[in-house]
Design a protein around this nucleic acid. Structure first.
Lengths: 232, 232
DNA sequence: TCAAAAGTGTTTCGGGTACACCCATGT
DNA sequence: ACATGGGTGTACCCGAAACACTTTTGA
């Protein structure tokens, strides 16, 4: 019996991927949005995303659409949730697999906007425009997930440059968790993890120079393999 | 401009839902499987599931397929993850939105097997058969999620009958978390939550009769609204 | 010399864990 | 009377939280 004889004839929804890309802004988290160049919702802001190709893994589709529409490079990408309400797209049944992603620096090569996107831009989470489709709920869910995940998985480092100060790390956690943290407790705890490597570099600027640290990915991989849980 | 003019012409994968249904067995968790009545993998055990209909929400599809194939009633259902590897189904591109679900008692009306399923049966997690497609990974992920979620969301009660003893609750947590718990500490902690209501009923059997409790859903809803987090 | 940010220890409190015996019933 | 599971209190320990001043640099 050939494989062809198994082939389904079934109502097939369209399948897209959409991506919530977070960056660390000066004023809270930032989210990358694109202005739609096509109907429906032409001219509205929306999450970057698009159709999944025939032989493409879902995550690859998300990465590809992001490069196509914004030219950005991700340091973290994970599936978020699949949204499939029948009425979520006026064109008909479109199921979208949503992802959320982190980038290390907002100042990547200036955002390009191509593909379906007419424009790409960072928005701080406090001044978001109306979003197309059900993208506002997707974004909300992604923000919640980020907040929940950051304290028990070391994904925060994906929002910082490779070398960072402890104060920068603390600011990051304060922004993501939406609450102030005690400086001394934070430093003690984060250093006790044994996952930060002190470099001999300094960050200079106003005030006392600060030691720069990097996250020791290998040490984390080893510790994780032995049942260590991150927890911050 | 009419909506029709927006309609996409795009390679459309088939979309299915699959469901990992957990019940509390005598020997650890049990999972509900169906024997496939159709190719591919005809005769193999698989997760219950099937195609999403044109105008159907994903969760509804999962519920419908479960009733169709096994006649079971769920007390909890949540989306798990979407599996979309291009090669996961020999028939072509099939993306499946996986769910996991809990039932309160294994002894529901005797399992019926209809639809695509030739047979439906509970398996303890320790003696699982080979599964069709990538269903083994789906099951594994669901089991991990269950374990992770049970300590900070009161979903464990969805595995017990409405009235239960504290010992039964403890056994449940021990099974799900895969570790022994201290009886006194467990009771203190769980009662301190203030979410259990002592009834005047007793469970009789060998040994001393045990008080029966029920979970106070309303109290939990109220507490949750005020920012309370379950945590056990 | 002043402004700005970095860096540093100790005490207190609460929750987590460990632990062993008596009680009420059915057989 | 004995087997079976139900029910109860205390002591210790460790991690979390609260808290304020000194240091180093650039302007």
């Amino acid at each position: 019996m050939s494989l062809e004889s198994f082939t389904y004839d079934w109502p097939r929804p369209a399948v897209t991927v959409d991506c919530v890309v977070f960056g660390l802004g000066l004023d809270g988290m930032s989210v990358l949005l694109v202005r739609r160049g096509e109907e429906p919702f032409k001219g509205s802001w929306a999450l970057p995303g698009g159709f999944v190709r025939e032989e493409e893994r879902l995550e690859d589709a998300a990465r590809r659409e992001l490069v196509e529409e914004t030219g950005i490079t991700l340091s973290f990408l994970e599936q978020l949730y699949t949204f499939g309400a029948p009425e979520r797209d006026p064109r008909g049944r479109v199921i979208t697999v949503a992802f959320y992603a982190l980038v290390q620096e907002l100042e990547q090569p200036p955002l390009v906007a191509t593909g379906d996107a007419a424009e790409a831009q960072w928005f701080t989470e406090h001044k978001l425009p109306k979003l197309a489709f059900d993208h506002a709920s997707i974004l909300k869910l992604a923000r919640t997930r980020l907040q929940g995940k950051v304290s028990w998985q070391p994904i925060g480092f994906d929002l910082l440059p490779r070398l960072f100060t402890l104060s920068a790390l603390q600011r990051l956690y304060e922004v993501v968790l939406k609450r102030p943290l005690d400086k001394r407790n934070f430093r003690r705890k984060v250093l006790a993890l044994g996952l930060l490597v002190e470099t001999d570099q300094l960050r200079r600027g106003p005030g006392r120079p600060a030691k720069l640290y990097r996250f020791d990915k290998e040490a984390y991989a080893r510790a994780e393999a032995e049942g260590f849980v991150f927890e911050l």
